[in-house]
């Protein structure tokens, strides 16, 4: 009787989870994969083939954009790590009490705000009639209006800004758990600051570094707003291609193939990152 009831409870709990995952995650992705294998041969007539993937390989614009999106995302990830690490160390190890909470909250707030608003802020700052351009002219450092929007540096600034939090939070968590006395022992034994960083701090923070990097990379790769708005028409971001195939050109077959390539790249990097450091997805995600 009791086991029957607990079995019923189990199935009742399992049902929502399965309905959610099957209808909104698994089936749509299987469906998208099948659509990406469809080649249009006539009106409402399709054949199964890899034609859409061949289009991707044969068109330099497409795979150049793909590669560009990948290496720009890697660059954004590395930059975010290098900028964020000293900040996380400062928050975790050099402050305490109320200052620590305040600094941490100040890192959180920009993330709660919509990405659109953050990007809008950068547009006002960087554009030709923007704040930076005016300040430079006022200081006499520029003769006329300077356009700082619509280039790779602008995209990079926006990407790093948008994903900073996802680096800082896991890093602070990881560094918080490092016992201060280990660092002090290192000093007492005569190690240089750099040696302590390399031998004690970085190895300890590795789980945080990995989960931060994975999340930042995925977010940059899948970002649409920042590259399109800060990079302009020539931003050449892969998500932009997916959007135009789906919404502008109405070529869902090619769009699905692109979507799958992006998903494949993103999953591959996550997989490699986890394997290289011997961590599991569950643990990494729980960190962030």
């Amino acid at each position: 009787m009791a086991t029957d009831r607990s079995k019923l409870a189990f199935w009742l709990l399992l049902a929502p989870c399965l309905i959610w995952l099957v209808t909104l995650i698994i089936l749509p992705h299987v469906g998208m994969f099948l659509v990406s294998l469809r080649e249009k041969v006539g009106v409402r007539e399709y054949e199964t083939s890899f034609a859409n993937y061949a289009v991707f390989l044969n068109e330099p614009l497409y795979w150049n954009t793909f590669a560009r999106t990948a290496y720009m995302s890697i660059a954004a990830t590395v930059l975010t790590l290098f900028i964020g690490f000293p900040i996380s160390y400062y928050i975790a190890k050099l402050t305490r009490g109320r200052t620590k909470t305040t600094l941490f909250l100040m890192c959180l707030i920009p993330f709660w705000v919509s990405e659109l608003v953050r990007t809008f802020g950068w547009m006002i700052l960087l554009r030709e009639t923007g704040v930076f351009s005016n300040v430079l002219q006022y200081l006499g450092l520029a003769a006329g209006p300077v356009e700082m929007l619509y280039n790779d540096a602008a995209i990079m600034t926006g990407l790093v800004y948008t994903s900073m939090l996802f680096m800082v939070v896991p890093l602070v968590t990881a560094l918080d758990s490092l016992d201060d006395s280990l660092i002090e022992a290192g000093y007492d034994l005569g190690a240089s600051g750099f040696a302590i960083l390399r031998e004690i701090i970085i190895p300890h923070a590795m789980p945080g570094i990995v989960s931060g990097c994975i999340v930042v990379f995925m977010l940059s790769l899948g970002n649409y707003l920042t590259p399109i708005l800060l990079g302009g028409k020539d931003s050449l971001w892969f998500t932009g291609l997916i959007y135009s195939q789906f919404i502008t050109r109405f070529n869902w077959e090619l769009g699905s193939a692109f979507g799958f390539l992006l998903l494949g790249l993103s999953s591959f990097i996550v997989f490699v990152g986890l394997k290289l450091t011997g961590q599991s997805l569950g643990k990494t995600m729980a960190q962030s």
Partner: peptide, 22 residues
Amino acid sequence: YVLMLLPLIIPGIILGISILVF
């Protein structure tokens, strides 16, 4: 459990198009 975490690593735009297509 891993399946439950998957939506975190799927880029939002791909989640959107897959649901749209399906």
